[in-house]
Amino acid sequence: MLRALNLTKMFGGLAAIKDVSVTFETGKINAIIGPNGAGKSTFFNLVAGAYKPTSGCIEIDGQDVTHLRCDLIARLGVGRTFQTTNLFDQSTVLDNLIVGHRLRTQSGLWDVLINSSRLQREERRCREKAREALDFVGLSHLENRVIADISQEERKRVAFALALATEPRLVLLDEPAGGVNPEETVGLAALIRKMVDHGLTVCLIEHKMDMIMSMADKIMVLNHGEKIAEGTPEEIKANPIVIEAYLGSDHDAAA
């Protein structure tokens, strides 16, 4: 599904990502871990097209997307959430999600001016897709609530739904469990598994190691922009380089 080859991103003289090569398989939960500043979010921004690499290439399903605009990459089926959940706080949950499927519509300014049948058809479709995504994440009962009035965990689920409304095949989740309690983390982990069960490929960044180790099929570890390890959770937990750089001796003892 996703392949990066010798990916490098320089900011001035600093290598945020340095010669990273990795493959993430279709229909799997793939995780990226590492200390703060390791380059995890930069890697996501490269895959999603928000940043262009200094060198190297990115392939989605065998197609080179290295120099495509982010909207074109999204049309190819890459959806994402962000570390900070930014939504339209004074709009309803449903209105926030209607925006997502507009990526798939064709109506232009003329359609808006004349209120064309195509515009009306596509607006209905956007609303249907928004409701489908909302039902998938378990928040149908909140469709008319204003975003400012819902909880942090519900905002996370709305962000998931917004990504799903774009009809993705690969979903990039940046710290999906950040800022929620352990019980809510379990619920979000179950939602991620549900996404994979419904045919999506997931790649996530997360600092909650219990969550990652219990659900990831494959983990890549970054440190100072470089890939220092990749493998199954069992392989990562036992890797002395990862323990020293990120997991720490306490995790080693617990393992």
Rank of each mutant, 00 (worst) to 15 (best):
L94F: 04
L103R: 06
V137Q: 02
I150N: 00
R121D: 11
A74P: 07
S55T: 14
L191H: 09
P35K: 04
G12W: 12
E226L: 02
E230R: 03
N239V: 07
G178A: 15
V202W: 11
M209N: 10
L164H: 09
R155L: 03
P53R: 10
E154I: 03
E184S: 00
L46A: 03
A31W: 03
I205P: 11
F88S: 07
E206W: 07
L222Y: 07
A177K: 00
D174A: 08
D149N: 15
E123H: 02
G77C: 14
E244S: 14
V47T: 10
T84S: 15
R127C: 10
V180M: 11
I147L: 09
T232M: 03
T42W: 04
T201M: 05
I73T: 06
S117Y: 08
S41C: 01
F24D: 05
N181E: 01
T166L: 08
C126Y: 07
R145S: 06
V196T: 12
D174T: 04
E235A: 08
I17W: 01
M211D: 08
K18D: 12
N30T: 13
E206L: 01
K9Q: 04
L188S: 07
D149F: 14
C57G: 03
A130R: 07
A254W: 13
G108Y: 00
K18W: 08
G248N: 07
R127D: 08
A177V: 10
R193A: 14
G108L: 09
V22L: 15
R125A: 02
N45W: 12
I192R: 05
T201S: 13
N115H: 09
T105P: 06
Q63M: 14
D174V: 03
L14F: 13
G34N: 06
G27L: 14
I17R: 08
L142T: 03
L68P: 04
A38V: 00
E234M: 05
T92W: 11
I236C: 10
V146N: 05
G34L: 02
L139V: 03
L14Q: 02
